[in-house]
Amino acid sequence: MAETPVSKMSFEQAMAELETVLGQLERGDVALDESITLYERGAALKKRCEEKLKEAEEKVAAITLDPDGKPSGTTPVEGL
């Protein structure tokens, strides 16, 4: 089974795989070459999680509230 490209993963998929990668690295029961590959994959997964979190934060920040504190709509976030 081919690995899913990190750029196509949802936050949840990337986080789940990152946890798996970290577990394998922490156990230390993989060969050095595989450890390096896992580390590289983990770094890419971490970056993807950070990107998805930033996107979510920007969307939340774009929600405007009316005087009663209720969402009244959204304002476009530059670049989205």
Rank of each mutant, 00 (worst) to 15 (best):
M1P: 14
M1R: 14
M1V: 14
A2N: 13
A2H: 12
E3V: 06
E3A: 14
T4A: 09
T4M: 14
T4K: 15
P5F: 02
P5L: 08
V6C: 05
S7G: 02
S7R: 12
S7M: 07
K8D: 15
S10C: 04
S10W: 04
F11T: 01
F11C: 01
Q13N: 02
Q13C: 00
A14C: 09
A14T: 11
M15K: 14
A16S: 13
L18H: 15
L18M: 10
L18T: 00
E19D: 13
E19W: 00
E19R: 11
E19Y: 04
T20N: 07
V21K: 06
L22I: 12
G23P: 08
G23C: 05
Q24P: 00
Q24L: 15
L25W: 03
L25E: 02
L25H: 01
E26S: 11
E26A: 14
E26T: 11
R27F: 08
R27A: 13
D29P: 01
D29I: 05
D29L: 11
V30P: 05
A31D: 15
L32K: 10
L32H: 08
L32M: 09
D33H: 07
D33V: 08
E34I: 07
S35L: 00
I36F: 09
I36L: 13
I36M: 09
T37C: 00
T37L: 11
Y39Q: 14
Y39G: 03
Y39P: 00
E40M: 07
E40G: 00
E40Q: 12
E40L: 10
E40H: 06
A43R: 09
A43K: 11
A44W: 01
L45I: 06
K46Y: 11
K47W: 08
K47F: 11
R48N: 04
R48C: 02
R48Q: 14
R48S: 03
C49V: 15
C49F: 01
C49K: 05
C49H: 02
E50L: 06
E51H: 04
K52G: 01
L53K: 14
K54F: 10
E55F: 06
E57G: 02
E57S: 13
E57D: 15
E58M: 13
E58A: 12
K59T: 06
V60H: 03
V60I: 15
A61N: 15
A62D: 11
A62W: 01
A62K: 03
A62M: 04
I63K: 07
T64W: 06
L65I: 04
L65A: 05
L65Y: 13
L65V: 07
L65M: 15
D66P: 04
D66T: 05
D66N: 15
D66L: 01
P67H: 08
P67K: 12
D68E: 13
D68C: 00
D68Y: 08
D68S: 12
G69L: 05
P71C: 07
P71Q: 07
S72M: 10
S72V: 02
S72P: 00
S72A: 14
G73E: 11
G73F: 09
G73C: 10
G73I: 08
T74V: 15
T74G: 07
T75G: 03
P76Q: 13
V77G: 00
V77W: 08
V77Y: 11
V77N: 09
V77R: 13
V77F: 11
E78Q: 10
E78K: 12
E78V: 05
L80D: 10
